[in-house]
């Protein structure tokens, strides 16, 4: 029995006087696709930032691949951080680098491949996210919103992560682009056997990814399960989120 990829136990977070999370527990097993949903301000992005080690939890413990996030020296932390990739909400591409250099950056930092190998790897990653070689020379400012997300995904995949974290992967994309991005993530997930955790508001994305859903409300994980299981839970937030007319329409089409 291997340790869960993400293991959050009894996590509490406080900003000033406000408790964002209280006694939050979440386990994500290898190969799972888990979507975190919750109302605005429920602390989804905060939780994601804690999982990737950008924020320290006030209380509680987060383990990735069975190892604690902090402590044990710079090299251990660095090695752990190389096992997951993150797609930030707005891409967070380095604006001074072109597309190629953005994707090549983590590989160069690794310092164990020559330029020719890096070139081939970057081109493979770009083709994985359905970009063409000529796009490699563009600057981030010249890209459309959908392309920024694709390049950011290619960069997140550069170091062959076992765990992929996506923050609002389809926000700001038109339905068509959003569909094709979700298809891409799903295909890559199947191909590479990733564990995926995403934060989203978008029911279409949830339905299309056929993910398990973790509902974050009232400062903890209210329910975790497939969409059908979640919809069976009787709770005001879940009723509003999944059972409104708009949501029904979105879920029925899939």
């Amino acid at each position: 029995m291997t340790a869960p990829v993400i293991d959050i136990r009894d996590l509490s977070t406080r900003f000033g006087e406000v408790w964002i999370h209280r006694h939050l527990n979440l386990q994500v097993e290898q190969g799972d696709v888990v979507a975190l949903v919750g109302g605005s301000g429920s602390g989804k992005t905060t939780l994601l930032r804690q999982i990737i080690g950008l924020l320290h939890p006030t209380l509680g413990d987060i383990r990735l691949f069975g190892e604690p996030l902090f402590g044990g020296g710079v090299h251990r932390e660095q090695a752990l951080r190389r096992r997951f990739g993150v797609l930030f909400q707005h891409g967070a591409l380095f604006s001074a680098f072109n597309v190629f250099d953005n994707v090549a950056f983590p590989l160069r930092e690794l310092g164990c491949f020559d330029e020719a190998m890096i070139h081939d790897l970057v081109m493979l990653k770009l083709s994985m996210v359905e970009l063409l070689p000529r796009h490699a020379r563009l600057m981030p400012a010249e890209l459309s919103g959908g392309m920024v997300k694709r390049v950011a995904l290619a960069r997140a995949l550069a170091l062959e992560p076992e765990l992929l974290l996506l923050d609002e992967p389809t926000a700001g994309l038109d339905p068509d682009r959003s569909d094709s991005f979700v298809r891409l993530v799903r295909q890559l997930d199947k191909e590479l056997g990733l564990t995926v955790v995403l934060v989203t508001h978008d029911l279409d994305t949830l339905a299309a990814l056929e993910s398990r859903v973790a509902v974050l409300a009232e400062q903890h994980i209210l329910a975790l399960g497939s969409i059908e299981e979640i919809m069976a839970v009787d709770h005001p937030f879940i009723r509003n989120f999944f059972l409104s007319d708009r949501s029904r329409r979105a879920l029925e089409t899939h």
């Binding site: 070139h119 081939d120 081109m123 493979l124 083709s127 994985m128 063409l132 070689p133 490699a136």
Partner: peptide, 8 residues
């Protein structure tokens, strides 16, 4: 997939 990567 590698074979399908368009050549630069």
């Amino acid at each position: 997939r590698l074979a399908a990567v368009p050549q630069d």
